[in-house]
Design a protein around this nucleic acid. Structure first.
Length: 563
RNA sequence: GCGGGUGUAGCUCAAUGGUAGAGCGGUAGCCUUCCAAGCUACUUACGAGGGUUCGAUUCCCUUCACCCGCUCCA
């Protein structure tokens, strides 16, 4: 393989450095901590600190407000994490949720067992070798042909294939097997033929499946069960085995009839749920992006069969708009439209919402048109009819469903990555100047100092407003500041700080992403006369501009900005 | 799961086979101080478990976590 483009390497390195800075800030400021850190941490699990908890709650509240509160056609649900084990048989998770994996004993590559044959036929060496399975003369090639291939093309293309590693041994056991079978081996198909040529010694075990990359021996498929097993009841026997839910969606399908019967909803309508889900990811990576315990926001929107395409399109648009409403810019959001062959057999369409993280473009949400697969499965497994009677058309049917399913933790991470910004802010000697964007690898000019600011949309910022007395050793200022703080804290997540120099307190709030800081000074307590009495400075996080505002106007000013 | 790297204070980084030091931060105090100001004091660390050794943060082994690459992502 040729060297990677050095420019790309540099860019990648910068992105890695950026991600490291974001992770460091998350820990330093109390957004995200490693789970069980004092015991050395636990791979794939993360805790949210005081600021992270607020951020995450804001994400969930924004979603609940826009998807449930503000709509006539969606109701909420909060189902249990542990459900009847049959739920997971019906959903297909028990059967299909464990992907058997094989790895190559030679080059160590890892494959999903059910994709290997596909990869093989696409690989250069197997495609080349397969020409000998059905040569122009017909029938599999002779041992001499195979040996010739092994010594020439095979050596280059598939160095670890048994036929190439040790052609004489491989071909001789095949010849023996042929003799024992009466002259010729009857291969059921090309797949089996390849497996024979991949097996150096038959006595050592079953036929070998070769590695698509190098031809080496793959291990037997090992099941990876991606669901967390647990037991209900105090006895840990087979009968009490169940799972922590790998998605919240099934709780919705399972309670479909109860919701239908208690809320007088009519198709089309949706059931929304926010909650934790658990998956034994093979390889957690990229900070909180792929965690083993995570939180989902899922909507199952039930529709009349045949209206799938239009509702799917509707929800894709709605959801893209929503991401912009919480401050993720359209330029970093991309829809990924599934190709026909990538869809599950029951799905008619699926679009993922991708976000440009520093570690690449990754999925935040999937919006799938799943037909009536889930309700049909539960009807089949439970024996309960999931049919809906449409009063208007007098039709009876199992509703189809469009499922927008979003990851709270991924969205929170996207917000953190998007908010992180380094710039050069004026120091006291050039106070009043506007901040300027930092230039990579350079020092700020005279009168400026670099600052890190989390530019969250005010709507999702963890803390909305911080209140400071200019000096803490002047009781009238402190008293007044506490009064203002108490005025605001009931309406907004607010923070009171009197420690250290005022500039330091501003910078602390910049790293927390607090959009507003209110400072009580000597004018507030009337030292400069009655016209400035009971006014404060309202400082804007992004522009650093200060404005003189009457205390009684503060709640409205802030409310308008954080709505 | 494989390969490579890393692990010393909250952060960044030192030193050392004889149990560790700085800068920044944090806390407290002084200061009529609006963008990480100044002065003073205080605070905190060798990821975990074994082994070698009189003695291990340092050498060896194991393990855990994090980062990078491969792979995977129903």
């Amino acid at each position: 393989m040729a060297d990677k483009n050095p420019a790309k390497n540099t860019a990648e390195k910068e992105q890695n450095v950026l991600m490291e800075k974001i992770v460091a800030l998350c820990k330093r400021r109390g957004f995200i901590f490693q789970s069980s850190e004092i015991y050395g941490g636990l791979n794939g699990f993360w805790d949210y600190g005081p600021l992270g908890a607020e951020l995450k709650r804001n994400v969930k509240n924004a979603w609940w407000r826009d998807v449930v509160m503000m709509r006539d056609d969606v109701v909420g649900l909060d189902s249990s994490i542990i459900m009847h084990p049959k739920v997971w048989e019906a959903s297909g998770h028990v059967g299909g949720f464990k992907d058997p994996m094989c790895s190559c004993k030679f080059c160590k590559k890892l494959y999903r067992a059910d994709t290997i044959w596909e990869l093989l036929t696409a690989s250069e060496w197997a495609a080349d070798l397969l020409k000998l399975y059905a040569p122009p003369g017909g029938g599999p090639a002779t041992g001499a042909d195979l040996k010739k291939w092994a010594l020439a093309r095979g050596k280059r293309l598939a160095p670890n294939l048994a036929l190439v590693r040790n052609p004489d041994v491989t071909l001789s056991w095949m010849a023996e097997a042929a003799q024992a079978g009466g002259g010729q081996i009857r291969f059921t198909d090309a797949k089996e033929w390849i497996s024979y040529l991949s097996t150096e010694q038959r006595a050592a075990g079953p036929l070998v499946t070769p590695c698509p990359a190098c031809g080496g021996d793959l291990t037997e498929p090992r099941p990876f069960n991606l669901m967390f097993k647990t037991h209900y009841g105090a006895l840990e026997d087979e009968a009490s085995l169940t799972y922590l839910r790998p998605e919240t969606a099934q709780g919705i399908f399972v309670q479909f009839l109860n919701v239908l019967n208690t809320t007088r909803v009519k198709v089309p309508f949706g059931i929304a749920q926010i909650g934790k889900a658990f998956r034994n990811e093979i390889n957690p990576r990229n900070f909180t992006f792929r965690s083993r315990e995570f939180e989902q926001m899922e909507l199952e929107f039930f529709i009349k069969p045949g209206t799938d395409a239009q509702w799917h399109e509707y929800w894709v648009k709605e959801r893209m708009k929503w991401y912009e409403s919480i401050g993720l810019p359209a330029s970093k959001l991309k829809p990924y439209i599934y190709k026909k062959e990538e869809l599950a057999h029951y799905a008619s369409a699926c679009v993922d919402v991708y976000f440009d993280f520093p570690f690449g473009s990754q999925e935040l949400e999937g919006i799938a048109a799943r037909g009536n697969f889930d309700l049909s499965q539960h009807q089949k497994f439970s024996g309960k009819s999931m049919e809906y009677f449409d009063d208007e058309t007098k039709e009876r049917y199992i509703p189809h469903v469009v499922e927008p399913s979003a990851g709270v933790d991924r969205i929170a991470l996207a917000l953190l990555c998007n908010a992180y910004y380094e710039e050069w802010a004026p120091t006291s000697e050039s106070a009043g100047a506007a901040p300027i964007p930092a230039e990579h690898g350079k020092q700020p000019p005279q009168g400026f100092e670099s600052r890190v600011v989390m530019r969250f949309a005010p709507r999702i910022a963890p803390v909305k407003v911080a209140v400071f007395p200019l000096l803490k050793n002047k009781p009238p200022l402190v008293e007044k500041a506490k009064e203002v703080f108490n005025l605001l804290r009931g309406q907004f997540v607010s923070f009171y700080d009197e420690a250290g120099a005022i500039g330091r307190r501003y910078r602390r709030q910049d790293e927390a992403g607090t959009p507003f800081c209110v400072t009580i000074d000597f004018d507030t307590i009337g030292e400069k006369g009655p016209e400035l009495k009971d006014t404060v400075t309202l400082r804007d996080r992004d522009t650093l501009k200060q404005e003189r505002v009457a205390i009684k106007e503060l709640p409205q000013r802030i409310a308008e900005a954080v709505r």
